[in-house]
Amino acid sequence: MNEDVFWQLIHECSPSTPDPDGHQLAASLAARLAKGPVFNVVGFAKQLSWALYRLDRREYGDDLSSDQFLYTRAAVVATGREEYQSVLRDPQRFMPYANGLVWAEALLYVPDKTYEHLTGDEWDRSTRYSYESYSNRAGWTDA
């Protein structure tokens, strides 16, 4: 799955009503990915990890716990490509997410749950980029 397909999927699965915890989006994504094939689930996981990794920088999460920071970054991804790119360009746009404690933790579990649904096996996921907070070392070096 390339980046364009990833963002199109986020867009198509986004609910039309407020979804402050990302549960509706996660359910819709899981339902779509559960139609297979498995490589789409793996591709989705890779793109999600890359998107979260890119937001893993000091200017976004210096004052947040690792869980707060991860779930807030997921909320930015859940808003879609346009807002995500705006936040990347201007770290001040991240603050409303962090200050309002808007989280989309449910988005993180979509690949694992969908993989298990399709294969019957738990996924020992590994992607090139870790989405865990503070894993982007370049984003946390002192400027």
Rank of each mutant, 00 (worst) to 15 (best):
R32P: 03
G22D: 02
Y60K: 04
R57D: 07
D90T: 10
W7F: 05
E105D: 12
F69L: 13
A45F: 02
R54F: 06
R73G: 01
S28I: 04
W123D: 03
L101N: 12
S66Y: 09
A51Y: 01
A34Y: 08
E3L: 09
V87F: 03
G80C: 01
V76K: 00
D112M: 14
F44Y: 05
L118D: 08
P37A: 09
N99G: 14
S135E: 15
E3K: 14
S49L: 03
L52E: 00
G100N: 07
R81I: 08
Y109A: 09
R32M: 07
K46T: 15
D124G: 11
Y129E: 15
Q85N: 10
L25M: 04
L48Y: 02
D90G: 07
Y53E: 07
R73K: 15
V42Q: 08
S14M: 10
H23Q: 13
V87L: 04
V76L: 05
Y84L: 06
V102D: 01
R128M: 10
L55A: 02
D90W: 09
T127W: 07
L70W: 04
T119D: 10
A45T: 03
Y53Q: 07
W123G: 03
H11Y: 14
T119H: 08
D67T: 13
E122H: 15
H11Q: 14
D67N: 10
D112V: 11
M1L: 14
E82P: 07
Y97F: 14
C13Y: 02
C13R: 03
V110H: 02
E59I: 15
D19L: 00
A78W: 01
D112E: 11
D63Q: 13
N99K: 12
R54A: 10
T141Q: 15
R32G: 04
Q68F: 11
L88I: 06
T127L: 07
L29P: 01
V5N: 09
S65C: 06
W50Y: 12
G139P: 05
P91M: 09
R125E: 14
A98W: 02
S130R: 13
V41A: 02
E105W: 07
